[in-house]
Design a protein around this nucleic acid. Structure first.
Lengths: 235, 235
DNA sequence: CGCGTTGTTGAATCGGTTCAAACATTGTGG
DNA sequence: CCACAATGTTTGAACCGATTCAACAACGCG
């Protein structure tokens, strides 16, 4: 009856995780899936942290604010990821959907009663912490061009991870950015104008083509994109 | 025999955690405590990730590099914290001690056999992820002055958390910075010269006094420091 | 069609970097 | 204990990448 996934996040699960049903995304079957519209707030910074949210479909942005309104998107959570983290029993950030999304809301109190789940959640959070630290590397030490390229590269990689290894890959990759220029800027620690200029420049260089419609983008040379954003490959 | 701490990180432990002995820092008694000298590498980015390290005493810096040598300190781990995180079975960052330190190295494979520990580790990593996201806010959106003040404030808070709430707190707080200017710069995403100038400026304004000896620092007005670094208080 | 939102581009400005030189502190060996 | 090297810090001047402010163009929803 309890169907168990053998793999989670690329590594075999320890035997202790045999008790709870895990969906194909690594999401435990606790709590009901909830549907959220585009740009809907999932949880708000400072509110009592009652739930942990698993993203099943769509995407969620995790954002922090300074008092004067300056904003930083600190994470973009894709399916399989978790949001709704807490510090001192309150949500440490505001989470908002980028697209229509399906999340599974699990009561923290109930979740923790399942010891077997501890390591499943831990793996996911560990992965997100690694990602956050890589993001910090970009924020602290990369130029505007590198940051934009790294982000676009990530979106490209989501849809065609295997094909971006060889130099003269001249296949086109059409993607739909779920973020506005301002949001990209807030994610990359840049002004929206700089994001604009950088993308226009990438277009001039023939790396991408910016579609007429909002968010439309064609990537002509994913490899070059990766290379430009691309001292990003860590030594 | 199995003594159990009732509290971990300020919150009552769920009942499932009653089985493993936990030290007063929340560190499980698996693996031997190891002593590390100052500036000793604990684990290296890219190496097979066999262990998870718990910091018992001292401090560890977590650092990432770009190919061309640009460096970013992405975290500073204090006692109670964890380092040695992995992505795809290899360490995602290089960890190095800031001071002589005592770490407890736990084999990941063995650790995961203890289901009860999953949530303990999860709590700690969740806390560190929240911290990383706050750090990202600083890297992305704060000025040099704000970043430096926020960091000094953190060091001050470590030693006198309760006393920094009132405005005209004119008590002096003497601290020993375990980081060089260059490292502070690498942590804050600034050049070492900017860190210097900023600190000199804070001294001119009477907020701090820079001691003669390396790392020596006296904070005269912790409250003002907090305020300057201090849109840092999130809305 | 019209108006609000999002995106683009230009010009001036500024915060922080870079490069360079001098200085102080710490550590080492004679 | 002193001399000297290595490491870390401070300061100045020129430069530059990114921001800011402003105007305008393109979508897109009613």
């Amino acid at each position: 009856m309890a169907r168990v996934r053998e793999e989670f996040d690329g590594r075999a699960l320890p035997p202790c995780l045999a008790a709870v049903r895990i969906s194909s995304l690594g999401v435990p079957d606790l709590g009901m899936p909830q549907t959220f519209a585009r740009r809907q707030v999932v949880c708000h910074h400072g509110d009592p942290a009652t739930h942990l949210f698993w993203v099943e479909q769509g995407a969620v942005m995790v954002q922090q604010y300074l008092e004067d309104g300056r904003r930083q998107l600190v994470d973009i959570v894709l399916p399989g990821g978790i949001c709704g983290l807490a510090h001192d029993h309150v949500y440490s950030a505001t989470c908002e959907t980028l697209q229509p999304s399906v999340l599974r809301a699990c009561r923290k109190s109930e979740l923790e009663r399942h010891a077997e789940l501890g390591w499943v959640v831990e793996h996911q959070i560990e992965r997100q912490l690694c990602a956050a630290q890589e993001h910090a590397l970009g924020l602290g030490r990369m130029t505007a061009h590198e940051r934009v390229c790294a982000l676009l590269s990530r979106f490209a990689g989501q849809r065609a991870s295997s094909r971006i290894e060889r130099p003269s890959d001249d296949f086109c990759l059409s993607i739909q950015l779920p973020l506005t220029r301002g949001e990209i800027g807030d994610y990359l620690g840049l002004s929206l104008e700089t994001v604009c200029r950088t993308m226009t420049d990438l277009q001039r260089r023939g790396v991408i083509t910016i579609g007429r419609h909002h968010g439309e983008l064609v990537i002509h040379n994913a490899w070059q994109l990766k290379r430009l954003g691309g001292s990003c490959d860590r030594a």
